[in-house]
Simulated scan of single mutants.
Amino acid sequence: QTRGRYKSKFHGATDYFVSLTVEQKCELAERELAEMKDEIERIKEDSEQTLQNLEAVIEETGVWWTDVKKAMSDFEKDMASTISSKKGSITASEKLLRYMEQKNHQRDLLREKLRLKNYLLKGYKKKLQQQLRQKEQMGETLCEVRLQELQVRNAQFQEKIDEKNQELLQLKLTSGKTVQVLNFYKRKLQDAMETSVSLTKYISQRKELLQKIEREAVLVEEQRAEAESVNQRLWKQLSDYSVPPVLSYVQQKMAVAELENNLRGWERKVAVAEMSFKSCRRAWNQVKVSGNQH
């Protein structure tokens, strides 16, 4: 019943405070879970207590049944020995009466003992019921206190939410300005990248030109070395050169002139021979043509 009343109040509070935050909902769920665990623990304790009571009753019944069997055994033993004696049924009747009186007295004592025990248990039951009512009243008070506490915490969380909203608005404004600055620097970066691409292309062209100049310089160096070698060889030949005598020079000059005259003569002879060869060839061709006609 306590949990039912608390649950109805709790749901009423939940319906009233529809704007609870996630933290508050988690806290309420944790409290509800803790109370459910407590209730399960109480039910478990009650079940264990009931089980212990039943075990005690079973044990007491076992003891009582043992006493009954013992009494039956004693009764049969005493009565059998009495009936088998010489006095016969008179002694057995007297002993049976004494036995019945003794058992009645024991039953009266047991009844009084159970009455006292029942009285004590009733007092203990009233005490437990009183404690239970106090706990129920305390539970209702705690529900109201928790409700007030939730109201206060809800107001506190609402203030924090307002503060966070203001901070969020300020951050949005700052973010807008930051985006503008970022766009400005993006444009500058784009211009710088275009300039960098142009400079990279210019540097590449200059590197190619430099490589070409270096190759030409190597070629020129090789040509210079070769020319220097030729120059040194010519200088060596010039240093080793000696002027021939005049007579030898005149003789060689005359020999050269004679060779040139002979060359011109042979050239004329070759020209005449070529003309003769051509005329012979024409005549031969005419002969071949006339032979083919016949």
Rank of each mutant, 00 (worst) to 15 (best):
2 T>S: 14
3 R>V: 15
4 G>P: 03
4 G>K: 14
8 S>N: 04
10 F>R: 14
11 H>M: 02
12 G>N: 14
12 G>P: 01
14 T>P: 06
17 F>N: 02
22 V>W: 14
23 E>L: 15
25 K>I: 08
26 C>T: 14
28 L>C: 01
28 L>N: 03
36 M>H: 13
36 M>V: 14
37 K>Q: 11
38 D>N: 12
40 I>Q: 07
46 D>T: 13
46 D>N: 13
46 D>E: 14
48 E>T: 10
50 T>E: 13
50 T>K: 13
52 Q>E: 10
55 E>A: 08
63 V>T: 08
63 V>H: 08
65 W>V: 12
65 W>H: 15
67 D>I: 02
67 D>Y: 04
70 K>I: 05
72 M>A: 15
73 S>E: 13
74 D>P: 02
77 K>R: 15
85 S>D: 15
85 S>M: 07
87 K>F: 00
87 K>M: 05
88 G>W: 02
89 S>A: 13
89 S>M: 10
95 K>Y: 01
97 L>V: 13
98 R>E: 13
104 N>R: 11
110 L>M: 08
110 L>C: 01
115 R>F: 04
116 L>P: 04
119 Y>H: 12
120 L>S: 12
121 L>Y: 06
123 G>F: 07
125 K>E: 10
125 K>W: 09
126 K>I: 05
128 L>V: 03
134 Q>A: 10
134 Q>P: 07
135 K>Q: 14
137 Q>E: 10
139 G>L: 08
143 C>I: 00
145 V>F: 01
146 R>W: 04
148 Q>I: 00
151 Q>D: 05
164 K>E: 13
166 Q>Y: 07
169 L>A: 06
169 L>G: 02
171 L>N: 11
171 L>Q: 15
172 K>W: 00
172 K>P: 00
174 T>M: 10
174 T>D: 10
178 T>K: 11
179 V>T: 04
184 F>C: 04
184 F>W: 10
185 Y>W: 09
186 K>T: 08
188 K>A: 04
189 L>S: 06
190 Q>A: 01
191 D>H: 12
193 M>F: 05
197 V>F: 00
199 L>A: 04
202 Y>M: 01
203 I>L: 11
203 I>E: 03
207 K>Q: 14
209 L>T: 06
209 L>Q: 04
210 L>N: 04
212 K>T: 07
214 E>T: 05
214 E>Y: 06
215 R>L: 07
215 R>D: 10
216 E>F: 09
219 L>Q: 07
219 L>S: 13
220 V>I: 09
220 V>R: 03
221 E>H: 08
224 R>F: 02
231 N>A: 10
236 K>W: 04
236 K>M: 12
238 L>Q: 01
239 S>G: 09
239 S>L: 05
240 D>P: 03
241 Y>M: 08
249 Y>D: 10
249 Y>F: 11
251 Q>H: 10
255 A>Y: 00
256 V>F: 09
259 L>C: 07
261 N>S: 12
261 N>K: 08
268 R>F: 02
268 R>I: 05
270 V>M: 11
272 V>I: 05
273 A>N: 05
274 E>V: 12
275 M>H: 00
281 R>D: 13
282 R>M: 09
282 R>G: 01
282 R>L: 15
283 A>M: 14
283 A>K: 12
287 V>Y: 03
288 K>A: 09
289 V>K: 15
291 G>Y: 08
291 G>I: 09
291 G>N: 11
293 Q>W: 05
293 Q>V: 15
294 H>W: 05
